[in-house]
Design a protein around this nucleic acid. Sequence first.
DNA 1: GATGAATGAGTGTTCATTCAT
DNA 2: TATGAATGAACACTCATTCAT
Lengths: 192, 192, 192, 192
Amino acid sequence: MGKKIDIVRTASHLFVTQGFDGTTTAQIAREANVTEPLIFYHFKGKDDLFSYILKTGSDKFFAGLEAHKKDTETEFEKIKNYINFNLRYVGKNPDESFLVISACPAKFADPDHICQKIIKRHKQIIESYLRDCIKEGIKKGEFLNVPIKETVRLISLIVVGLMRQRSFQKKSTAGLNKTTIEFCRRSLLKNP
Amino acid sequence: MGKKIDIVRTASHLFVTQGFDGTTTAQIAREANVTEPLIFYHFKGKDDLFSYILKTGSDKFFAGLEAHKKDTETEFEKIKNYINFNLRYVGKNPDESFLVISACPAKFADPDHICQKIIKRHKQIIESYLRDCIKEGIKKGEFLNVPIKETVRLISLIVVGLMRQRSFQKKSTAGLNKTTIEFCRRSLLKNP
Amino acid sequence: MGKKIDIVRTASHLFVTQGFDGTTTAQIAREANVTEPLIFYHFKGKDDLFSYILKTGSDKFFAGLEAHKKDTETEFEKIKNYINFNLRYVGKNPDESFLVISACPAKFADPDHICQKIIKRHKQIIESYLRDCIKEGIKKGEFLNVPIKETVRLISLIVVGLMRQRSFQKKSTAGLNKTTIEFCRRSLLKNP
Amino acid sequence: MGKKIDIVRTASHLFVTQGFDGTTTAQIAREANVTEPLIFYHFKGKDDLFSYILKTGSDKFFAGLEAHKKDTETEFEKIKNYINFNLRYVGKNPDESFLVISACPAKFADPDHICQKIIKRHKQIIESYLRDCIKEGIKKGEFLNVPIKETVRLISLIVVGLMRQRSFQKKSTAGLNKTTIEFCRRSLLKNP
DNA sequence: GATGAATGAGTGTTCATTCAT
DNA sequence: TATGAATGAACACTCATTCAT
């Protein structure tokens, strides 16, 4: 009964560790203890399986993020919260997380492809979240007068880098996590 | 005559844009205007071609870095120099750079594989370069008393993220570049 | 309730337009608005479904032919009647007709296979019908002294060709029909 | 060296006896004593192999027909010549002939598909040949005043039927051949 | 009578690689 | 150096069919 889930979980893990092209449907079937045709019974094909993982992964992430949002006194608390959420989330869901932040297979490069749409939406939501924090923090006088767009991209890039280390290279990021937050605090706050 | 170079250049580009597994020797041959067996005349196989690119790419990078090293008054100048060098280098050699910093195909996961060795050496050299700067900066009183290992990893991660954007997503990083340096300056220096 | 009939009708049509091997049980199920296992509930398998169609098609054809036989003054009237019946029949039952006259899938080539038996019987009945007409016509002095066996084969071949055009290529054969009868009349009759 | 020809010949024969869908590339390879990938080295795919056979078969047929055309005293001699040529040709090239006259796989139904174009051209050339004979015969007073279009279709249909018997059912058509010509003679000529 | 889930045995096709020249 | 022909092993995917319900 849970065979569809087995397929999804096994595929997610293999796509992360071996890449989409480096993973065969035969291997997914073998490691999920199902027969190969069952993959094609539940999904239109390997591509569709990948898209499905991406979509459900992205949805789950935002559901978690939404539930995690809290009102905080300072804007920096929000950014800190966001970084912490990301790292805790990726710790619990290393595979799905990685696929969304990592580049998807080149063959899905068409911007109209569902994968590109999911990834784009993912980035937009995250960037708009950070942008609001920084804008507000500057307005309130909490933050230095940093260039907004670039700072958003930089923090995004840092968070993605941390997630990548955590999910792909399986390095613990415990100490790194704290260092990063302090690094950002000193760079953003007027009075760190 | 220059056919070996054509193969290497074409392969580098395709490996970056499509991944190792997503690139076929047939495609490399076609786009390099050579026949497929010629690839196997010059290289032992597709794996060997990849390793060759990685090795020469890494060597070239360090040759450039070595030539670029200057004695500067402050340690932060050195870090700034390093960031700038990376971004200028990746602008000129987007393909080779990317392959070294990006994860290599899962099938080369064996730590004894030459690719893993190249990548490991690459990381070590970069990290030791940054570590020296930070250690020295702290000793001199130029930098705050930041945790060394984590800060090195964080800056590495930022630089890799910038290179990734530049080489893979082809985004210009002009503004981002400057913002990043200021971001680091405020975080590292006692008197920014 | 009428689902078995839906399967048979849909399958007949698809077998004619796409061939036996070119038609999948999945497609039959889809276009008949049933689920695939239902086909296997009603028939032993795809082969059995085909045989069933062939058998009922052939039976229906002969029932119609029997009902259509009339006593006519001349033997040529009988042949004309036969040609007309065939074409009218194929107009109303294009699919079943075609399957009987067209060659059946090569995998049923074994002469002991039920399909071969049906097709053989079909040909025999038709040829014996025509043979009787021609024999009698020659004896009566109505027809020229044509070689019987070959003339039967020729007329069979013409009728099958007409049916094929009608059922498969969906060409109207209205004018062709009349021309054919006149063609035969001139060739067969002593005094056309 | 002759392996490409082996593939073509084996495939032609199998397509005729088993149909396009009933023939697997594995079987073609096995019976042609080549490996399967070689088929795909010489042809883009199974479809392309089929189209190639159709095209070369049709071209060869017309080359033969052209070489066979003779000036004859009567128009009926031309038609007789044509029928004889067809049957002699199909005797020597049973496979290619059959594929051109037989319906091609339903999946190539698109009128823009090269197979449809070949088949259409084939029909047109044959019909125009016959049309010219009949038109001229009527004008000369050699033939009865038969309806041209329908008579062309009828004779085409007869010839195709004969070829089909010869090539597919492997029946000898020696006697049938002569009977057919006499049949047509009586039907067409004013003074048979 | 009817179905969702599942599968063994293929299907056309592609791959990196080799060989004879 | 360079290539046209060839291949073993694998690839994503489909097929007719079955089974539990």
